[in-house]
Amino acid sequence: MERKNRFYFAGVAAIFGVMLAVGLRTTLHPEGRDTRDIWELRADLTKEQKLEQRLLEELESYEETLRRYRREHEAGGATELEATVAKLREEAGLTEVRGSGLVLTIAPFSAAGYVGPAVAAVSPELLQRLVNELNKYGAKEIAIDGERLTNRTAIRDVNGATKVGSRSVRLPVEVRAIADDADKLYSGLAVSPIRDDFAVENLELSISKPQPLVVIPPAASRPDVKYMETENGGKEEK
């Protein structure tokens, strides 16, 4: 190759090099940089430490239970196991719960001079919103129209009727909620816009003063257990 040709070739190769570099820079985006400042880092650190603390506490409680099981096993008793079953039944919503809380009533609402269709039902969306709001302000147990809300209770529309679990809900609806701090729940609901949301749908949500004793019934149906089997009844694996 002549000398001049070589220079041209080198020039073209250089252009190719530039293109390649730019292309690589474009396709291989740099990883997102950590732009947290020291306060955000501290907040995140605190959050993680709290999580760690909580996990450790949980671990400790399980270990304690395990130790008690062992002791009981040696002593030949079963009270600890029964206590655990009772606790689990309580967590699953199979027991009646009493405590301080609120009683909320949802009723049709019509302003003076209102001429329009009367409201016949409360929509599931509105009920879900109310449940979210109650949970937000610390409600522990909730029952809608006598139906206990558990983790598996569905609030849905079935052919135009609002159902909570397996029960059809008709106006007026009574919602009971138990909280550790009923006053906080009350004041939270008092400032929450949830009453306006009900008013938009021509419903009135009245909230009682905190009551020292609110009774929430147990869940009517036992949850279906599909994927668990008892040890004796289970199929034996080869």
């Binding site: 080198a10 020039g11 190769a13």
Partner: peptide
């Protein structure tokens, strides 16, 4: 060696210059 040198030089220029093409033209 000259073309290789050119290629490396071009690559270095491209990397150091820090040009980037917008995503839609990549």
């Amino acid at each position: 060696w000259l073309p290789l040198l050119g290629l490396l030089l071009g690559f270095a220029i491209g990397v150091l210059a820090g040009w980037e093409v917008p995503d839609e033209y990549s």
